[in-house]
Simulated assay, not measured.
Amino acid sequence: MTESEKIDLLLQAVTGIQADMQEVKADVQGLKTDMQEVKSDVQGLKADVSELKRKVSVIELTLENEISHNIMVIAEGHLDLNRKLDEAIHLTSDIKAKQEIQDLYIRRHDNKLRTKGIS
């Protein structure tokens, strides 16, 4: 093989390598474009996560400051109602006991009156 043929073969090889390099460059450019899209998507996700964090903080503050307070107020009200119910039950039992005593007195006096023949 002559020098000229060797040079032609080398030239063809270099030309093939250049064509392959152009394809690689195009692929790299496509990857760069794809990476820019990914970066843009990641930025959007970061913004969304930041907004979600803010909303969660607001919800946590609402739970802590308003709802927990309201639950405590309701619980205190229920305790007060429970105390009042206990007092009412106690008062009712006292009234019932007094009524039973009065019923006994009435029966006793009624019996006394009957025995004397007044009724």
Rank of each mutant, 00 (worst) to 15 (best):
K53A: 06
Q18P: 00
D27R: 10
Q43E: 13
I67K: 04
D80M: 11
R108S: 15
M21S: 13
V38M: 02
M21E: 13
M72K: 15
N111P: 01
I17A: 06
K55H: 05
Y105K: 13
E66M: 07
Q102Y: 08
G16T: 10
I106K: 01
E60V: 07
K98F: 00
R83P: 03
I59N: 05
I71D: 03
L104N: 06
D110K: 08
L45Y: 06
D86K: 12
S93R: 12
K116N: 03
S50C: 05
T2P: 01
L79W: 00
K6A: 10
I7M: 07
T15W: 00
E37C: 02
G16V: 04
D110Y: 03
T115Y: 03
H69L: 13
E64C: 04
H78L: 15
K25N: 11
H69K: 14
S40D: 09
H69V: 11
K25S: 12
M1L: 10
V58P: 00
T33G: 04
E64Y: 06
H69R: 14
E66F: 09
S68Y: 04
D80C: 04
A47Y: 02
L11I: 06
S50L: 07
A97Y: 01
K46H: 03
N65T: 08
A19Y: 02
R107C: 01
I17C: 00
K116R: 11
T33L: 10
V28E: 05
L81Y: 08
V56K: 11
D94S: 13
I74Y: 03
D48I: 05
N70F: 03
L45A: 08
A88Y: 00
D20L: 06
K84N: 12
R54W: 06
R108E: 14
L10T: 05
E87G: 02
L113C: 01
S57D: 15
N111V: 09
E5Q: 10
E5I: 08
G30A: 09
K39M: 03
T62V: 08
E60T: 07
L85A: 12
D94F: 00
S57C: 04
E76P: 01
E64I: 02
H109W: 02
R83F: 07
Q43I: 02
L79C: 08
L11S: 10
A26Q: 11
G117V: 01
Q43T: 09
R83N: 15
Q22C: 00
H109A: 13
I74T: 08
V56N: 07
K53Q: 13
K32D: 05
D103S: 08
I71K: 06
K32S: 06
L81V: 11
H109D: 12
E37M: 05
E51R: 12
L91V: 05
D8G: 01
I59S: 04
L104S: 10
A19K: 12
I7D: 03
Q99W: 03
I71F: 02
D27K: 14
G117L: 01
D94K: 12
A88H: 07
